[in-house]
Design a protein around this nucleic acid. Sequence first.
DNA 1: CTGTAAATAGGAATTGTTCCTATTTACGAA
DNA 2: TTCGTAAATAGGAACAATTCCTATTTACAG
Lengths: 145, 145
Amino acid sequence: MDSVLKKKMDDFQAACRARDLKVTPQRMEIFRELAEAEDHPTAEKIHQRLSERLPSLSLDTVYRTLRTFAEMGLILRVETTDSQAYFEVSHAPHHHLICEKCKKIIDFQWQQMDEAQLPEEVRALGRFEKKNVVVYGICNRCLGK
Amino acid sequence: MDSVLKKKMDDFQAACRARDLKVTPQRMEIFRELAEAEDHPTAEKIHQRLSERLPSLSLDTVYRTLRTFAEMGLILRVETTDSQAYFEVSHAPHHHLICEKCKKIIDFQWQQMDEAQLPEEVRALGRFEKKNVVVYGICNRCLGK
DNA sequence: CTGTAAATAGGAATTGTTCCTATTTACGAA
DNA sequence: TTCGTAAATAGGAACAATTCCTATTTACAG
């Protein structure tokens, strides 16, 4: 069956060992939840979803673990104007549409953008690499289409 | 002297009237502070800076006013991973570099980007217009250059 | 000037996130 | 397998940013 997920989990464990991080059930479950998620859950949401399987899971653990994963480069924090952070496992580079009405976040790819070089003057200012485009607007659903 | 500022203030008052918003001293001062700011102050910072001239200014008023301005399209909320929001008056369209070390925000322009069309598939998803690029990295200063 | 709806001050409440610390656990070594 | 230890967790307290509540004040139309 889901050998893709299995591979992800194996890679995840390898990534942990490579950094001398213990492979705990909490970390496994949180990573799996993110790897399987279709949406961009918040820490709170992840906690909710997992609390059935891990009833004693604390919210602090979720936050701590997400930070750890982000430091490892395993996941991405999605930028938004709102205060809450959204998370996702980093797969192919992509950007985000945010509907200003329903706040839904939609991923999209934009190769032209990924390949684009920053302007000369900007490159002179430091080592800047991770380009992240956020586009705001209204999604079709909210437009009533 | 600063006729540029004067014009900005006049435009500001006009913008308020156009929306039936009262021109209060608080709104004037907050707008002026932003119009003159060289950096990207937080609400708190703005409150600090103004509390000399407006000793009774409440933090809530600053937050409320900033939200109002953002709705009016007069100012922009700068996106960051951190929770605090940064504000600036919207002048020429521009994007942001964020140094992951010192958290400094540097504006830059990128016309090619502003003019770039979103991919076809993306345009089909709704009405998305405001493109905002955030580039993360390390600034020269933090690189020790 | 006056009346009224809008805006403000100040403090309380909320929300997202992090800290504290006693307890538990993963896992390398014996 | 068992043990020791450093790392990780749970749970609640603390914190920081932001928003809410409401009595009071104010801009401005008439």
